[in-house]
């Protein structure tokens, strides 16, 4: 089942990448990043079935980092929303000067 899991995880990862590229809503783009992290977790678990449980340890770390990232990222989104009244990335151009 290793090959099938890797193919599935590749497809999910690419759906996440395409989602980041075609959407403008900051929250949805954030959720696409979570989807990519999930796809990578599937790769780790699929390999851990062959190469031993170290892959699952890495999944635990990835989940921790994803939780931290979601907390900080959503706080940033709330701060931007307070500033601009929108989460549409088309209207957020603070770096353009």
């Amino acid at each position: 089942m290793l090959a099938e899991s890797l193919a599935l995880s590749a497809v999910l990862f690419v759906i996440g990448v395409v989602g980041v590229l075609i959407r403008r809503n900051a929250i949805i783009i954030f959720m696409c990043v979570e989807l990519m992290l999930n796809a990578v977790n599937l790769t780790f678990v699929a390999f851990s079935r062959v190469y031993g449980a170290t892959g699952q340890v890495f999944v635990v770390f990835v989940m921790t980092v994803a939780a931290a990232e979601a907390a900080v990222g959503l706080a940033i989104i709330i701060a931007i929303f307070r500033h601009r009244q929108t989460v549409n990335l088309q209207n957020i151009n603070l770096m353009k000067g």
Partner: peptide, 21 residues
């Protein structure tokens, strides 16, 4: 995905997937 984790013998990760994600 959590079902797939359980099928791939990673029961702990499957539970964490439901609880955390």
């Amino acid at each position: 995905l959590s079902v797939l984790f359980v099928l791939l013998d990673a029961q702990f990760i499957g539970v964490m997937q439901v609880l955390v994600y």
